[in-house]
């Protein structure tokens, strides 16, 4: 918090505190009633988990990205193609098969995130987008790079984009992202 001249006016608020070994308490039994007016005790309880997460039947899709390929799931019966993998078709329930999707596509919609979840705060502002592939029934959630996040425009919708792949795979869906064609 700074005043108009940019001089800090407050000490920063942090989630650290001094350890407390004793709390004030009224004299008993005469002040028992005063306990009803006591302010709540608020403490910090850390909580950390490492999950062992499996991509299961969708694993080839992740492996595809780390090898420069976007896979899709295709239903032979309905001819539906899904760029976010599904082991079974949403319409008929048949098992899908893998197909290779093109590296060129279009922006279906987008947003610029100026805030977000704790994990992604350091990346703000970043551009989230949904990508449409020709002949696909559904979309792909991804990141759009190569545009100025401070100058968003509805003109970005419909823009031709091409896939870029991370050289060092993180085995995450962000191993692929999109940039305007020719950039």
């Amino acid at each position: 918090m700074a005043d108009k001249k940019g001089i800090p006016m407050r000490l920063p608020e942090t989630e650290t505190a001094t350890e407390v070994y004793s709390l004030p308490f009224p004299e008993l039994p005469k002040d028992l009633g005063a306990l009803k007016g006591m302010k709540p005790i608020v403490v910090k309880q850390p909580y950390h988990i490492d999950y062992i997460h499996s991509y299961g039947q969708d694993s080839p899709w992740i492996a595809g990205l780390s090898n420069g390929t976007i896979l899709g799931s295709r239903c032979k019966r309905c001819r539906n193609t899904y760029p976010q993998p599904r082991g079974h078709c949403m319409d008929c329930g048949d098992e899908t098969e893998w197909v290779v999707l093109p590296n060129k596509a279009k922006v279906h919609t987008f947003t610029v995130c100026h805030f977000g979840s704790q994990e992604f705060l350091p990346e703000c502002p970043f551009v989230l987008c949904l990508i449409e592939f020709k002949g696909c029934e559904t979309l792909l959630l991804s990141r759009l790079m190569g545009v100025d996040p401070l100058k968003p425009s509805l003109k970005w919708v419909g823009m031709e984009v091409e896939a870029k792949f991370r050289r060092l795979s993180k085995t995450k869906p962000t191993d692929v992202y999109f940039v305007p064609v020719g950039s």
Binding site: P85, S117, L128, L141, S142, K172, T174
Partner: peptide, 8 residues
């Protein structure tokens, strides 16, 4: 497929 892309 959603959260790791920038879940918000």
């Amino acid at each position: 497929f959603d959260y790791p892309v920038g879940g918000f």
